[in-house]
């Protein structure tokens, strides 16, 4: 499925919701993700790890009764002192050392609470990795599906979580396809109501990526870590 088709599907889901009339909320959020990046370059190659990095993200989400949609952009840099993630490019593989890599996430998401506390969602996701030493960039994008839920503990605290997976293509910036990838993500967190319109959240986010390149190479890595966020909600 091409990226354009995925965008159309995402847009269609949003457009289909226009007819619904219900209570509406708009939420603006920021998040700090103290994740470490570790993985394996596959085929007996080196493993790599960085705990010198993190991500900052912003999100805007809109909910209307049981329906919600939103956009999230997150990014940050990771410093690899020794072995880093290899560049499996269309011109060959390039091992890296002592490299700084920029990692970014883009999510366009729409979900619906089919059950009182459980929702299903689709996520048009794109992940970018950019090696700053030679300014090489590749992207992984695809359509993901997930489930989320929450459990209120009291009027202030709510536990929540989500899990989902994405299947997609790995491409260079000139759209040259390099292979296929899958990823999954697990979030477990707690949300605290500061006031009528303000929330803070904290928890653990685990993301796993597996990339199968067309030349037979394989790379796996994880971005795991704690996060803390703040959301301001406008109700109307």
């Amino acid at each position: 499925m091409s990226i354009n088709k995925k965008i159309y599907i995402g847009g269609l889901i949003v457009l289909l919701s226009f007819s619904v009339q219900a209570q509406q909320n708009l939420s603006l959020g920021v998040v700090l993700n103290g994740s470490g990046w570790s993985g394996d370059n596959g085929q007996g190659s080196s493993s790599f790890s960085s705990d010198k990095g993190g991500q900052f993200g912003m999100s805007i989400s809109y909910s209307m009764n049981k329906f919600y949609t939103g956009l999230s952009i997150q990014g940050g840099e990771y410093q690899f002192d020794k072995t880093g993630p290899e560049q499996f490019s269309s011109t060959g593989n390039l091992p890296t050392q002592s490299v700084k890599v920029k990692h970014s996430d883009f999510d366009l998401l729409a979900g619906y609470y089919f059950w009182p506390k459980v929702s299903l969602f689709v996520d048009l996701k794109a992940v970018g990795s950019r090696w700053l030493n030679n300014d090489y960039e590749q992207n992984f994008s695809g359509l993901g599906f997930g489930v989320s839920g929450y459990h209120p503990l009291n009027e202030k605290w709510t536990l929540y979580g989500s899990w989902g997976f994405v299947g997609g293509k790995i491409r260079e910036t000139d759209k040259t396809e390099l292979g296929d990838g899958v990823s999954n993500a697990l979030i477990v967190g707690a949300n605290y109501t500061l006031s009528k319109n303000d929330r803070i959240s904290m928890g653990l986010k685990v993301r796993n990526y597996t990339f199968d390149y067309d030349d037979g190479s394989e790379q796996e890595y994880s971005l795991n870590g704690l996060f803390a966020g703040y959301n301001h909600v406008f109700s109307f």
């Binding site: 847009g11 457009l15 919701s17 226009f18 509406q24 970014s104 366009l108 048009l124 794109a126 950019r130």
Partner: peptide, 25 residues
């Protein structure tokens, strides 16, 4: 980053139009 720019622009447009339309309804 080219994908990101395209996706971001499209998403913002969808969200903004969605917000305006649903608010008007």
């Amino acid at each position: 980053m080219k994908y990101f720019n395209q996706l971001t622009l499209l998403s913002v447009l969808i969200l903004v139009s969605f917000f305006q339309l649903s608010h008007a309804q």
